[in-house]
Amino acid sequence: MIRIERLAKRFGGVLAVDGVDLEIAQGEIFCLLGPSGCGKTTLLRCIGGFEVPDEGRILLDGQDVTGLAPWLRPVNTVFQSYALFPHLSVAGNIAFGLETLAMSKADREARVAEMIALVRLDGLAARRPSQLSGGQRQRVAIARALARHPKVLLLDEPLSALDAKLREETRLELVELQARLGISFVFVTHDQDEAMAISDRIGVMQGGRIVQVGAPAEIYDRPATRFVAEFVGRINMFERGGAWIAVRPERVALGAGPHSGIVRECAFLGERRLIFIDSPLGRMTASVAGSDGAPENGATVAFGWPADAERALPQ
């Protein structure tokens, strides 16, 4: 579907994207995950056609689109700010992309109506963007981008402008929408929970490079580098015999084991409880069920983990 070969993009002297190779399959939700400045948005903008890479190629269905203008590409974008045209109604925004297609007026109106129904904005067609809630605006942005029937939908931090509760609901809706349409979604986020929740595969980016590609569980359980391990979820990390050993806090069991330390603090998070322990290995974190009792601060506890919980990472 999308094939990216040795892509590099420089701004001034800074390499924003540094030799990325990537393949995204038909019909998958692919997430570019990374901290701000890692190049994920630049990579997305290269796919959208807003930036032209200095090196490398982008192929869409086997066709080289590297230098193709954005208005000629069969991809559409949901912008982070949504970028809804404030002077056009909801219907006007959705119809905008159809005006340059060879389409009868009736077909165009039918497509607009279909899109409004798809994102459940019935009755709001005549509203201006300023008269919509944040969630509604996001749906208009999605409907507008989908109206041209793109082969790929690009989403730049599509949930960042929503509040926490709405964000969770919208995640589910995005997954359902993608399943119904069957096209590829490529989205960019710095939020690892979000990436985990909706992606088929994740590409973790650091310093303009993709450091690991894999399914969410694979990224979480078998991080390829220390950066990935620390960026995705909580992790305990200590050195042993020249290698870094990583253990997820939920694999750490209290009460028995080869290690011991002093409890510094217990943080109650509802369903989970985090126990911070100072031990010869360094500061360790254990995550236990919230219903279990917590040890006293200052108490000495023994702890350990099963052998398969350990993962050795390169330096």
Binding site: F50, N76, T77, L84, F96, A145
Partner: peptide
């Protein structure tokens, strides 16, 4: 927002 014009380009407008 410069993204407004980018959105127009994205939606098929030169």
């Amino acid at each position: 927002d410069p993204a407004l014009e980018e959105a127009a380009l994205d939606l098929g407008a030169g």
